[in-house]
């Protein structure tokens, strides 16, 4: 009974997060401007991080946490570097 409940909730969560990742990717591909793409990339990182946590919950191991933590770190550094480039890249031009 409880296993069915958790199965339903986790399946819904995985589908919802996968759909969210697709929507974020659509924004990355579509643009229209560079800041929109970076915002989409940042959202994609957070969504995939959450997807990893949910997958870890489903499988029952805590290895996915380490992966989620790494994704979070990478996403932060990437977004900061890209946003910084938007500000500075144009100064040099």
């Amino acid at each position: 009974m409880t296993a069915t409940l958790m199965w339903g909730a986790l399946t819904w969560a995985q589908f919802a997060l996968a759909a969210a990742a697709c929507l974020a990717s659509w924004r990355i591909l579509r643009g229209p401007r560079a800041q929109d793409r970076i915002l989409g990339l940042d959202t994609l990182y957070v969504t995939v991080m959450l997807l990893f946590v949910v997958t870890g919950l489903r499988v029952g191991t805590s290895f996915f946490f380490e992966a989620a933590l790494v994704i979070g770190l990478l996403g932060f550094v990437a977004t900061v570097a890209l946003a910084k480039f938007l500000i500075r890249g144009e100064v040099i031009e």
């Binding site: 909730a9 986790l10 819904w12 969560a13 995985q14 919802a16 997060l17 759909a19 969210a20 990742a21 929507l23 974020a24 659509w26 924004r27 915002l39 989409g40 959202t43 957070v46 969504t47 959450l50 949910v54 919950l57």
Partner: peptide, 16 residues
């Protein structure tokens, strides 16, 4: 889990 994933989905829906 359902609330959190639904909120995230709504957020990206807004993004689009």
């Amino acid at each position: 889990v359902v609330a959190g994933s639904t909120l995230t989905l709504l957020g990206t829906l807004g993004l689009v």
